[in-house]
Design a protein around this nucleic acid. Sequence first.
DNA 1: TTGTACGCGTTATCAA
DNA 2: TTGATAACGCGTACAA
Lengths: 340, 340
Amino acid sequence: MQNSAPATIEDVARLAEVSIATVSRAIHTPDKVAKSTRQRVNQAIAITGYTTNAMARSLRMGRSNMILILAPDIGDPNFSSTLIGLENEARAHGYGVLIGHTQNDPERGLEYLKFLSSGQATGLVLFTGHEPFGHQVAGTRLPPTVAVFEPVFGSKISYVGVDDVAGARKAAEHLLSAGHRRIAFIGDSRTRLGHKRRRQGYDLALDAARIAPENRIVIEGEGTIESGRLAVEQLFMRDTLPTAFMCVNDATAIGVINGLNARGYDLPKDFSVIGFDDVPQATYLSPALTTIRQPRTAIGKQAMALLLAQLAERPTERREILLMPDLIVRGSVTGPTVRR
Amino acid sequence: MQNSAPATIEDVARLAEVSIATVSRAIHTPDKVAKSTRQRVNQAIAITGYTTNAMARSLRMGRSNMILILAPDIGDPNFSSTLIGLENEARAHGYGVLIGHTQNDPERGLEYLKFLSSGQATGLVLFTGHEPFGHQVAGTRLPPTVAVFEPVFGSKISYVGVDDVAGARKAAEHLLSAGHRRIAFIGDSRTRLGHKRRRQGYDLALDAARIAPENRIVIEGEGTIESGRLAVEQLFMRDTLPTAFMCVNDATAIGVINGLNARGYDLPKDFSVIGFDDVPQATYLSPALTTIRQPRTAIGKQAMALLLAQLAERPTERREILLMPDLIVRGSVTGPTVRR
DNA sequence: TTGTACGCGTTATCAA
DNA sequence: TTGATAACGCGTACAA
């Protein structure tokens, strides 16, 4: 027997024969209400199926218990498992999460900004690598925020992510220790901070191995499958072939493998390829991709923990938490082949 | 010069020297307010940077302009492009969308249900194939809802999706016309309606080609990569090999290709494989996967249009809109090989 | 221990 | 054409 309109606190109060104030107290500070009253209230809640109206509550309190997650591309294979870490940690502390998909569209950014400033979300997680577009224009102050997956360029927003330099260094060292001396780095970038750091790791490893700069091959790329294919074509045009490809991420590696296959090469015999990220597809490539695994769920968990801490007591200093990634050895790396 | 607290309608009213009622009117029914007054109000809005507080608005109106999208798995490659269709159509009509990730967890379902009944979202899009868990328990009435991607079993919720029967039939006919007579169907299901329909399409095509039932091979599977690999193993154990694999979806096809590759077969020479969905990775497999393409963005667009129509005038009858998918020919299908 | 009454920011009704 | 004011559902001083 349920009404069409959802039960309000008043319905409960009437049924329990108390005032709405008592109902509210019975819910939020149970020890401040007599045991017998509390029981009557709880019964009434059960009967009516009462659920506190989150909107009214947030309006009154000036804050909600929702966290907004802003992502430019939900299809990114790195996104979903990071999200799980974020969600689980939030739930464990009584917060819910909502996902906003910006598609890198400034207008959408603005829209979600309004959502925030209406108080419909209390905290913000950024996958975007930059503040929401229109943020400065709108002149709004951002709520407690943490960035994930890509640090926010030129800002004091805290960041939780993988240690790109160390991970990339591991990758390069793996190639080096397999005997490679001509290693190409595919996917260099001037704008993406994370990719820049991976390039640093590459250089660090090659420095340590005393590989002369003129024996390093660096190709730019935006980190997409297409950019990987393109890089292969560029290399073949220049006719400066490496024995191994170190890719800025797995998407690039997939493109490289693809391009190499298309040219009829037999991997990993002819060339070695290593990636970064360990996306789900990496296992199903042929050869299966040797790569650096991002601890995505752990990153999500830590990021949310940091955000909730900020929510509790607003600190000023920016924090950067870097998690160490692991090398995952599969089939795409072997010793170098001497080509004639 | 901006305040810390966001401007309210009262700030605007004070600055424009009118009442808050007039401000509200100037915004929503501009023709009902004198031109000069309207201009003063607009100026004041610009100066204060006023943005209407969505929460207060929704509380008063009893409805918001947000649509909640419930998905069990955001990582599903079918999800993101469907989402884009949904988002664009919603935006075009002044609605915003929020994504809820259930991970098939009943508790999470309940949580989002509360979100809905608080009026924080007005409409619902279901990717889940079932009503939110706990729906019956909570005894809540669902808002206007439409299902996408997977029809909701045993319910009168409208559905927009691909024509599975017709698509599967196209796939089977493609195999047939390439000369195959022993075609295995991988991924049969008793519970998933969409997969059942694909199986129907397979049977229809084979009926028409007068392939006797004893020459049909049907393997169950849950539509995952792993289930595809498993199916291959089963077939080899039984020693009843087909010349072609028709897979219930691309994930299964990837597993099948993988299993076949692992056994050292040369595709598509030794076996043909066809998928269903056309996920982004399909192009990058070797061989590139011939498959049936779901018009995902169009599905999203149509689904949202249907939902918004329901929002405008609540109809009773259930509708099912089926979009026709296309055959995408790539490299994974050739004529059958005679095996000794 | 409990109840009364105000305010959160809007929109809508009713007078003026 | 405009303004006062009542609701929307809730939390919490303050009073009892």
